[in-house]
Amino acid sequence: MFRFILTKLGVLIPTFLGVTLIAFSFIRMLPGDPIELLAGERGVTPERHAELMANLGFDRPIWEQYFSFLWGILHGDLGVSFMSRQPVLEEFLTRFPATVELAGCAIIFAALIGLPAGIIAAVKRGSAFDHTLMGISLTGYSMPIFWWGLLLIILFSATLGWTPVSGRLSALFWIEQDTGFMLIDAFFSDEEGAFKSAVSHLILPTIVLGTIPLAIIARQTRSAMLEVLGEDYVRTARAKGLSSFRVIGIHALRNALITVVTVIGLQVGVLLAGAILTETIFSWPGIGKWMIDSIFRRDYFAVQGGIVLIASIVMMVNLFVDFMYGLINPRILHRR
């Protein structure tokens, strides 16, 4: 087990270095620089521009800048955002709970519906339920997020008035953000109705963000189950006189889960990193929205630091998924 984790960690180091290099260079490849954007229409004299750039350390050779970036990462220092004058790490951490909350709800929503739907479709293969589900999931998978989000807003917010349009909490409430997770903070706050408001703000973003993962999970679960249901050991389980629930829910599902856990794990990574569109549509103050804003401002430190942090989290999620494999499927742990 120890060795298994160690090998996985060994692979992560070069990946991490690659990510730092990409994060560092990509933002610098974009035309314009932070000073020009700060100056805006008024412009700035070349002397003043050079002076300000030198203040931020951008006059040094590019490799030196890269190594000081790496050096900073090693010391937990990702620099200071130009815009907010706050350390990048702090900026990230204040917004991260909002993204985690949304991504978490979305993945739970997707798995709670996708897994059972996929299992039923596989067991009742070729039935009307199967065909309908596969049709819907293909639609969901191909649905452009921004359009789907707007459709839901028009129906549920504008026409029916059931859900709020944007943000995490109604402006009527003001609550202490102890954990950064609105659901938790609102639940323990004294404000009556705050929790209900927090939930209602989460519903639409959760559905929008969870749609694609839901479609993927349902389809993958179905195909994994179909494969497993034809295996000899499933027939053995039936031959033992076990109930359908045990045969499908324990003997078959345990094996199918290996594939499904991978898919869910990958989706968690995707959601944490890529809730950008959903966060923008619903003005959700999370990482995605912050990254977009930072890119527009050429906030070099915020962008490179943010990308590295997101990438690290995705890598950790993947490591966790690898670890889960071992728990679900003993063959992977025992392979030497």
Binding site: E231, D232, Y233, R235, T236, A237, A239, K240, G241, N255
Partner: peptide
């Protein structure tokens, strides 16, 4: 089945659940 009538299969390597 599994109690009064039971059956052994051809492929022992795939007939037991690997998990």
């Amino acid at each position: 089945i599994g109690k009064d009538i039971s059956m052994i299969f051809q492929e022992p390597m795939t007939s037991l659940n690997p998990c």
